[in-house]
Every structure is written in structure tokens, then in C-alpha cells.
């Protein structure tokens, strides 16, 4: 089953909606609350990254009997150095964004921690794509 959520750039009033919707869906399915929590954290961090660092994008959720797959894909600007971006504490967030409580450089590392399988691909200037799998 597939669910899709559109995330627009710098729209903080809707940021977090994908994650809370995904939480509701997984809860209806009776999935273990520990797993729901991991899926919610991964989605939240991914959607905030799209809202803050990208020109907008979407989150797609696929649910199967044994796994949850979350794909986050945006329209760029992409990440130049992925290895650096994955480091705990690394952030390019502006002072303004930090004032809003984001920009600790923990989002991507946390997503990875919450996933059973994780991949990040990006073409600088074009897109960033996260593929997250959590086993049920």
C-alpha cells in the first residue's frame, strides 16, 4: 500500500504532517509502537530536511506485511559531500534556521539509526533521495 505526501519548501506550518499521518496509519495497522516511533522519527527528520534544505519534494510510504519503506525525494539542490552530511553534528543550516531549533546536524544520522536499511543518493544541483526500510 502506498501513501504520498508533498512537502513544500520552508513551509513550517505543515512540516511534521507527513510524520504524524504516517504514525496514524501505522497505528491503525496495529504495528508495534517501538517500530512506529522509529518510522515517525525517520519521516520527521526527512521531511524537515526537505522543507529546510531543498526546493521541495515528497515523501512516499510503502507498507507491506513485513516492512515499511519510506522514500524521501526532492528537487535539489542536492548534497555535495554525502559523507560529510552524514556526520553527527555537521550542518549547513543558517543562523535563522538554528534559531528555530533545527540545525543540530543530527537528522541524517538519526534517520540511519532508525532504519534497518538506509541509502542516500544525491546529484549535486539536482536531487537528494533517501530510501529507508524498517522491518516490522
Amino acid at each position: 500500500m502506498k501513501f504520498e505526501y508533498t512537502i513544500s519548501n520552508l513551509n513550517f506550518s505543515t512540516a511534521g504532517e507527513a510524520s504524524s499521518n504516517i504514525k496514524k496509519v501505522l497505528k491503525l495497522l496495529g504495528i508495534d509502537s517501538k517500530i512506529i516511533r522509529r518510522a515517525a522519527i525517520a519521516t520527521y527528520e526527512a521531511e524537515i530536511n526537505i522543507a529546510i534544505h531543498s526546493h521541495g519534494g515528497k515523501i512516499i510510504l510503502y507498507i507491506e506485511e513485513d516492512s515499511i519503506k519510506i522514500t524521501a525525494i526532492d528537487k535539489g539542490p542536492g548534497i555535495e559531500n554525502i559523507e560529510l552530511a552524514m556526520k553527527e553534528g555537521y550542518s549547513t543550516a543558517t543562523h535563522e534556521i538554528r534559531e528555530m531549533g533545527f540545525g543540530a546536524g543530527m537528522g541524517l544520522p538519526n534517520i540511519k539509526k532508525c532504519s534497518n536499511e538506509f541509502s542516500i543518493t544525491s546529484e549535486f544541483g539536482k536531487y537528494t533521495k533517501l530510501e529507508i526500510t524498517i522491518f516490522i
Partner: peptide
């Protein structure tokens, strides 16, 4: 104890079917 009242079904495959029907 956690409340299970929001769940569609105990069995995930039935719950998935119900979710499809809802959608």
C-alpha cells in the same frame, strides 16, 4: 497498558486489507 482501541485488526494482513478498503 497501551490501549489498542485505534487498531483496525489484530492481524496485520487483515488490517492491511481493511486499510486498502478505507483508502
Amino acid at each position: 497498558l497501551p490501549s489498542k482501541i485505534m487498531e483496525l485488526d489484530n492481524d496485520i494482513s487483515i488490517a492491511l486489507k481493511k486499510m486498502e478498503a478505507i483508502n
